[in-house]
Structures are given as C-alpha cells and as structure tokens.
C-alpha cells in the first residue's frame, strides 16, 4: 500500500492546515482525543446529573436501593426546600383530604401526610446569597477597575510592591483568618450582617479583580486615550468613553469570577453569619438534621444554587474564554 507521503490525504483539503495535521496518524489522534474528552466530560457530569435526578424524585425514590433511573418526577424535594411542613394527625389528615381549596403544593405535601406551615428559611438565605454576592461583586469590580487603571497607566512609587501586597492577601487560606475576623467582627458589630459579608467578600475578591483587570487594561493601547485627550476630553472622560467600552470583556470575566467566589463561599459564611445574614451554602447541609436526611431537598437546594452561576457563566462564556487566556492573545 502506498504511504501517505506519496498519495496525500486522498480527498481535497479545504481548510488551511499544516501537512502533519492531515496524516492518518494525526486523524486517529484527533479521534482518540475527542473520545477521551467525551469520557472525561461524562464523568464530570455524572454528579450533576445525579443531583438533578434526585432533586425531582419523590422521597421514597430518592432513597431507593438500587437507585432508580426511571421514575415519576415529583416536587417533593422542592416543597421540602421551600416550605416548613408538619406531619398531620389522623383527624387532621381526614379533614385535609376532604378539602378542595388546596394549592398544588399542599396537595403534594398531603400525599406524604403533611401540611405546609409556611415558607422555609431557605428562601431568605437564597435572597441573602443574592444580595451579598452581587453587591460584593459590583464593589470589587468597580474598585478593582479604578485601581487597575491607575496601576496600568500611572507611575506609582513602589508599584511592584503594592501589587505584590495586594496579591499577598490571597495567600492565606480562609480557614486561617476566619477566627481573627470572627473576633473582630463581633467586636465591631459586623457579625451576622449583610454589610459585614459584603465587605469581606469585596476585600477577598479585590486582589483578584485588580490583577485580572490590570492585565486587560494593559492590553488597551494608551494611544486611544491620548487621542481622546488631544480631541478635547479630560482624563476621566477618556476613561469613561474610550477605556471602559474596550474593557468590557475583562470586566465581564472578572465579574463572573468574583460572583462565583462570593456565591460559593462556605467557610466564612458558616463562621461569620448566624441567622440574619446566613447565605445558602452553609444552609444546604444544615437540612441534613431535620427528621432524617432529606436527600430530595438537599439536591433541590444544590440544583437551585447552581442555576444562577450557570446562567451568568453561560451568558458571559465568550468573555470568560478571553479571561482565562488573557495575555496569551494579542488583538
């Protein structure tokens, strides 16, 4: 049989590609990598798929052994997550079964002989998570942007040291600083407050946002601002009209990373919040204890918790890709 070197690929090559990339070996390698990627992706996705399934299983299905792959979807998990329920006595049960004014939720609860008392704490905690993570993200990105611009464009005495100092705040593991921060927060009255958590996450994200945004701003040639200056604009106007629109990519990427951190953060939230400002992450495992393990509710909570990050990440995926490879590509 003639070798590839003599016959060529056999079919016309329509894309611009190096010769070594169309040899039979390269093609086999491509398939192998593709299959490898699919397998790895599948392994990574199994827990998520499992969680999603558990979230919509009824309570008996959720704990069935062997696990059921095919089942009738149920809202049990979500009801358990969002509502406080109590077991009905025989008399009440009979009365409830007669009633016709029950909502969909109450009907579902009734199947398991329970009535709904009211919304659970989880709703409030999800709200806390939203408030704290979005506020701290906005703050960290805004402040980071201003600092990054200054670091990128101005001669600042001790610039390198300052940047290193900012970075060094990320070098301590969270666990190490939780206790001192807990003591300080209690002393100044920031324990279990939204403000306290927002400040903390902002401080934590700031180093990251300064460094990431500086990279993006460094990539914007300063000629654009100079052009705006001679065109009759002040430094601040030039920043707003010229730099900002061009830094959108970087700002979006930074915002997603900050949001994900603040949204997912567990250790500080567990230590520094009690009831008022508690966020979702530490409250999901706390459901473990209430009358047996409510796997359905835990899965439903985790799923709900996942969704906002997935949406934001998906919406900004174009920028994220630029974000993780920034510096590697010149425009």
């Amino acid at each position: 049989m003639a070798s590839f070197a003599e016959t060529g690929p056999g079919s016309p090559v329509v894309e611009s590609i190096r010769v070594d990339q169309v040899t039979p070996r390269a093609k086999t390698g491509l398939w192998a990598r593709l299959i490898g990627a699919v397998v790895i992706a599948a392994i990574m996705l199994i827990p998520v798929a499992w969680m999603t399934m558990t979230a919509i299983k009824s309570r008996p299905d959720a704990v069935a052994s062997p696990p059921k792959v095919f089942f009738v979807p149920s809202l049990d998990g979500f009801i358990g997550l969002f509502a406080d329920r109590s077991q009905l006595g025989p008399a009440e049960l009979a009365e409830y079964q007669q009633r016709t004014d029950l909502s969909l939720w109450e009907e579902q609860a009734l199947v398991r002989g329970m009535k709904i008392l009211g919304p659970s704490q989880f709703v409030g905690r999800l709200r806390n998570s939203l408030i704290i993570s979005s506020a701290s993200t906005v703050l960290a990105v805004t402040m980071g942007l201003l600092a990054a611009y200054a670091f990128s464009r101005y001669e600042i005495p001790g610039k390198g040291d300052l940047l290193f100092f900012i970075l060094s705040t990320r070098m301590l593991p969270a666990v190490v600083v939780t206790i001192p921060i807990f003591l300080m927060y209690r002393a100044v009255g920031l324990y279990d407050t939204h403000i306290g958590m927002i400040l903390l996450y902002t401080a934590f994200n700031l180093s990251f946002s300064v460094w990431l945004l500086k990279g993006f701003i460094d990539e914007i040639p300063k000629e654009y601002e100079e052009a705006a200056l001679v065109d009759g604009y002040s430094r601040l106007q030039a920043f707003r009209k010229i730099v900002l629109p061009q830094a959108v990519t970087g700002i979006a990427a930074t915002a997603v990373f900050c949001l994900i951190f603040a949204w997912n953060e567990y250790a500080f939230a567990l230590m520094l919040t009690g009831d008022k400002a508690r966020t979702a992450p530490p409250s999901i495992p706390s459901m473990l204890g209430v009358g047996g393990i409510e796997w359905g509710s835990i899965a439903a909570g985790s799923l709900l918790f996942l969704i906002p990050v997935v949406i934001v990440t998906f919406a900004l995926r174009r920028y994220l890709l630029r974000g993780v490879t920034f510096g590697a590509i010149r425009q």
């Binding site: 040639p221 000629e223 100079e226 705006a228 065109d231 061009q246």
Partner: peptide, 20 residues
C-alpha cells in the same frame, strides 16, 4: 496646558481609531 486646551490635532502612527 492640558492637551485638550491646545487646539491641536494629533494623527497617530497606528491611527488610534476607537475600535468600539
């Protein structure tokens, strides 16, 4: 004087046209 107060136009080597 600030560049914006000199009433001078500058044409840059790489044009510096605002890409957005």
């Amino acid at each position: 004087r600030h560049p914006s107060e000199r009433d001078i136009a500058f044409v840059f080597q790489f044009y510096a046209l605002y890409p957005h």
